[in-house]
Amino acid sequence: MASFRHLRSRLVPLLGPDIDTDQIIPAQYVNAAGTEALARALFRRLRDQNARFVLDRPEMAGRTVMLVGSNFGCGSSREAAAWALSAWGIRALIGRSFNATFSGNCLQNGLLPIAAPLEAHGALCEAIGAGADPEIAIDLERDRVEFTELGIAFSVGLEPFARELLLRGMDELHYLLDRRAEIEAYETRGGPLQ
């Protein structure tokens, strides 16, 4: 996994509560293979229904941060939702709150789910609603998210472990493989319930 340190982008705004993973990637595309197919599958139905859906507006090309609402990624635990977002180019999500399974899946794939404080999130949505197109700067080393034009800043707020893995570009599998002796000892004990 590549390491994550700094990021600058403008936002892809996709507001509204409870956007579920069925919308992020419809079920029949869950087994799409390869970056291109996954990127095409992202929000496929909403894009098919609406030619002016935010992802397909020309000015959104190349943007890497999506602004979302609350409980984003609820529903099915399908990890393909994170894959499709990454495949399209998204590297961080700014939202009010995320479904826990979904944000875990994002982190497994080097995609940052950042929960913004209520006030900051409200101010951001308002500014976007009024036509602003602010630039975001994410600095994972300094644990900072900044919108200089809007005077909004908050911390990334990731757990130290997840942050460290991201900064080092290391994945959980290697951490677990390194725990081999402990796992063997546990199996020998048979576990307290056995």
Partner: peptide, 11 residues
């Protein structure tokens, strides 16, 4: 998630 399927398979 699927990445954790990998973790559970391997460890």
């Amino acid at each position: 998630g699927t990445t954790q399927v990998l973790h559970a398979l391997a460890t």
